[in-house]
Design a binder for these strands. Structure first.
Lengths: 338, 338
DNA sequence: AAAAACAACGCAAACGTTTGATTAATTTTG
DNA sequence: CAAAATTAATCAAACGTTTGCGTTGTTTTT
């Protein structure tokens, strides 16, 4: 029995009033009398009336939907972030649609286009590794679709974004190692193309020079983030004339490769490793990093979502300021496991 | 400059033809002449015409959207599964909206309702731990919204589902341990309320009896899956008159707790642990499980999505058969790390 | 040459809801 | 008591697209 969903028209027909009255009645519009309003609501309830969303969206030209484009949902960081986004969205009665760029620029462009055609009310984006042009986002301006970037953000300020201060986080990390007595600290950084690499390097340099030490460029090496690349970086440090006693890795994956390699060489105890948190259970490792930079994906997602919802609701003024939100990251020192 | 999106009407006005012709022209309808068709397409292109999705959805009563409801996106298994779902959906030009039940029955009911109101074309669901009633899904039948369950499925056959055969997987796991020479094998199972617990127990029993051994019920204990619960289960086995030499844990989290506890007690080398894969990096642990049951979340997501899209496209026949798809799970034996 | 077939397009309704303008009935006010 | 204000409801248009049916001309078939 194919029950067609109840419509406003249907209710109007039964009650012998006009559809507009029903609509207004359901919305507590003042120009509908109390008695009629109650009759409407009761009948609506008993008929299991549910507003036809598609019709409303169409009518209002709003979709109550926000799009999320991110590189890889299977990365723990993003799965937490989108989890937060969804939690926030549902509170405000918004729906989330999402898609993955798989770190591919062309795919990202397509997805932005698709989201636009889906008429999302706003977009949350963590850009792909490949992305260095941003026309596809600027295009959204003319359609009045606000965009908030999070975590992986473009390298300029005149956009809305939420991100972690990797620079200050790195300063904290290096300071921590310096306080522990380390005097030669290596850094396995990411590719030079990434803005995140730059931030890490800057933080490293600042911490070093602030502590009146000399910055040795050969202690910071770039890495393609693969296992092989990590091994090469490790070898570089093992053969270094000022062999480091501590190493800051670009992320937990690199840390994992590094620890694995060092254990194989049986030199793991010669090093303290500090990483940036990606993997929730890395602290369960026997020789886990002594500290991790926590980037609070849930918080980032939450803030980004709220900013976007703000932008959607605020009448767009031409000269509005840009939200440039920095989430402070913290250095989490791993307690010694017993 | 608030450019209003181009509409079919607009194109019709400019070309001095009717909107219906424009619509038909854009869709290569045979009753539109080749010249007019080209004129239409050219103008549409030059005006950057994009169909108004909301209008089409409304008109057709279809949303080209599938909903996904799952317990926790931050669980690795589900983040992989939904990643697959999205990949499949986008191939067929469908959009995915999702929401998390956070393993809460009431929330799940609400979300199903919401998805229905959003007029999703179909629903993919992995049910929450709390769910033992299924009225909220049955209700969707009358609205002709197909539902495909995956991984966490209801305990009956007259629904569409994709799941892993935990029973056969458990048989493989226990067989493997028996072949390794273990004669007393413990199992830390989940709560009795879960169907998955039942399957594991059945598999365990089958493997034991098939090998002409006696099934000892006290070697299978239920556990609430917390760290504390795991420790209690561990103690039970440590004090067991036939102390097991191998333990099958409900999942990687339990395995993690167990290994941690055994290491603390310094008895880790007395046990082989076999687990069910949840955490991608657990094999990096020093005393990682000797084997893991791989449940192929990507494959499950992929199959579930394809089945759902099939159902959406097939005209619903009353007496249609149910897809009961079992994804064979495999026992992955961890290579010895050096 | 009349009938039939066809090609190319327009008309109008429909999908369900919202909303500004309007009307009708009632009540208040000076 | 007439005019003004208030209340309660209706009307009709609009949002953009699709689609069954009807209407032209034109071409082909008998």
């Amino acid at each position: 029995m194919q029950s067609k969903p109840t419509t406003i028209k249907e209710i109007a027909r039964i009650l012998n009033i006009s559809p507009s009255s029903v609509s207004r009645g359901l919305h507590d519009h003042p120009s509908i009398g109390a008695v009629t309003r109650e009759k409407i609501k009761q009948l609506a309830k008993s008929l299991n009336y549910e507003p036809n969303n598609a019709a409303i969206l169409f009518q209002k030209g709003k979709t109550y939907t926000i799009g999320v484009i991110l590189p890889e949902l299977s990365e723990h960081f993003f799965s937490i972030a989108i989890s937060a986004i969804e939690d926030e969205a549902i509170k405000k009665n918004y729906t989330v649609i999402f898609a993955q760029s798989h770190d591919n620029y062309d795919q990202e462009v397509k997805l932005v286009e698709k989201m636009k055609n889906q008429r999302v009310d706003g977009l949350l984006v963590s850009i792909s590794k490949d992305t260095s042009k941003f026309d596809h986002f600027e295009k959204l301006n003319s359609f009045n679709i606000p965009v908030v970037f999070f975590d992986r953000i473009p390298p300029f300020k005149n956009v809305h974004y939420v991100a972690c201060s990797l620079e200050s986080a790195t300063i904290k990390a290096v300071n921590y190692l310096l306080k522990k007595g380390h005097r030669s600290i290596g850094m396995i950084n990411g590719p030079t193309t990434l803005y995140a690499s730059e931030e890490r390097k800057d933080g490293y340099m600042q911490a070093i020079t602030f502590n009146r030490l000399k910055f040795d460029p050969s202690l910071v090496v770039n890495c393609d983030l693969t296992e092989q690349g990590t091994i090469e970086a490790a070898d570089h440090f093992l053969n270094h004339k000022r062999k480091p006693t501590a190493i800051v890795t670009f992320n937990d994956y690199v840390a994992l490769f590094l620890i694995k390699y060092f254990k194989k060489l049986n030199v793991i105890n010669d090093f303290d490793v500090v990483s940036y948190a990606n993997l929730p259970i890395i602290s369960y490792l026997d020789n886990s990093p002594v500290a991790s930079v926590e980037q609070y994906p849930y918080l980032q997602g939450q803030k980004a979502a709220n900013i976007l919802l703000d932008l959607i609701h605020s009448p767009n003024s031409e000269n509005q300021a840009y939200y440039n939100t920095i989430v402070e990251s913290d250095l989490i020192v791993n307690e010694v496991k017993d």
